[in-house]
Nucleic acid binder design. Structure first.
Lengths: 251, 251
DNA sequence: GCATTATTGTATCAAAATGATACAATAGGC
DNA sequence: GCCTATTGTATCATTTTGATACAATAATGC
């Protein structure tokens, strides 16, 4: 993992203090954005999570909405800040607004430990509703960026998530279900895989997203019949068997 | 249409003034709920809309979220206030937060005409993000309720909507698309039709939702093969032809 | 009564999609 | 040149879907 700097507590507190002072002038109150960033590596579907301070808990990358910024723009900005990528595939899929969410005890305790007690009236301490987006990124191009509060940015296998705060585990599940239907309808898969790929690689992606296996020959027939793939030259990868063709999604 | 009382301007202004004074203490700032209420009558899919004051413009029923209330609870409360129904089928489907939405000129102009200029700093005048739900109701049980600002509650054929304010037409379209996929996956149809029905009536419902026709015999075969319907006695309706069976969704 | 009519329920084709399996092609290892 | 693992295609059977035919039947009108 690159670009990770663990900031000293003193500096952290200073940074947080400054944020709390300026935030109410810059951001909407009561609404935040959370993002489930999906990537695909080692034949596994992964999500990018942030370590909450120096605790074993992780949360989804998120942020606030500027007063004159649309939700979509805010999500895109937050993602760009976090991944240093342009042109990210984004879908809004859910808005989380239960009360218990705002009263997550672990988060409150940890926040207090790290930066002291926040007055109940503070902008930051009020109730927030979170608009959730998922993003599909080519993990080879992602350059995870940390910030003061979150000291580590890490990819997790979707089936081996760490402890997460708030209702973020439920949100990740909802994101996955939505991704599954979008993979069918919107062919969103092209955003998770490189420009060119073999049929075997594409099948692994589909299996990772749907979390089930497909019969190779039938998968190939089905996906080719959709007419969205273009066949390129063969890929000689030094293995002692027939070389697979490379394919590309037709733009 | 029942329960409709057009309030005099004087009373309206007084009511609005009172609302604006108390709202900031009761409701979350910056977040509202809008609902697309679907009903099915005369073989047509309908949506319930509110007339904006005495103008020709309509909007979706909506409201604000109490400070200690979940989004789902708020949507349910708003629907109950508007339809006087319990146990309403609800699905959250989208959150609208573009900037232009908050700057709808017609709405601002009309609001000013009706209740005067609202200071820019006012709770009501700030930017709002709207969490959208759709609801499925048995229209025969709905008793539409008006309120001060909205002087008429009316069902509109989904394909013959009136002029609507904000981005509410786009929201209605999104709601319909979501309803279409939920009708498949969640068998949400039972919420739009009475307890018992003939196969013909059910087909009309499906045709209204999908906005296309189905071949009668194949529709019947398909829906029966799902195993979700229970066949009841025949319905002798006085027509000079074979009497259809009644069906009911298995609970 | 009995033919007539409109509608409903079921059956039966053909066509398309899917599931399961067989098999030929082939790139490199030995 | 044989062997092996993998890939691409073909070919079955099965299921699903689309289109059509046809029998059943509840009132009507003679």
């Amino acid at each position: 993992m690159s670009n990770i700097d663990i900031i000293s507590d003193k500096e952290l507190k200073k940074g947080i203090k400054q944020f709390l002072e300026t935030a109410p002038d810059i951001y909407m109150a009561g609404v935040s954005v959370d993002t489930v960033i999906f990537g695909f590596h080692n034949d596994k579907l992964k999500a990018l999570l942030l370590r909450f301070g120096n605790t074993p808990y992780f949360i989804l990358p998120g942020g606030y909405i500027m007063k004159e910024e649309s939700l979509d723009d805010a999500a895109l900005r937050i993602l760009q800040e976090r991944t240093a990528l342009e042109n990210i595939y984004l879908e809004q899929f859910y808005t989380s607004g239960s009360i218990s969410r705002s009263k997550e005890e672990v988060a409150i305790e940890l926040t207090q430990k790290m930066i002291g007690t926040i007055p109940h009236s503070n902008w930051f301490a009020q109730r927030f509703v979170s608009v959730c987006y998922y993003a599909l990124v080519d993990d080879t191009k992602v350059n995870p960026v940390t910030e003061a509060f979150f000291t580590e940015v890490k990819w997790f296998d979707i089936s081996r998530l760490p402890k997460v705060l708030y209702d973020h585990d439920a949100i990740i599940n909802k994101a996955l279900k939505r991704l599954q239907s979008d993979l069918d309808e919107k062919l969103a898969g092209s955003n998770l895989i490189g420009e060119t790929f073999t049929m075997g690689q594409l099948q692994k992606l589909y299996e990772a997203v749907y979390q089930k296996e497909f019969v190779r020959t039938n998968f190939q027939r089905k996906i080719l019949s959709l007419g969205v793939l273009e066949r390129l030259e063969k890929q000689y990868n030094g293995k002692s068997h027939k070389a697979p063709y490379l394919y590309r999604f037709i733009k």
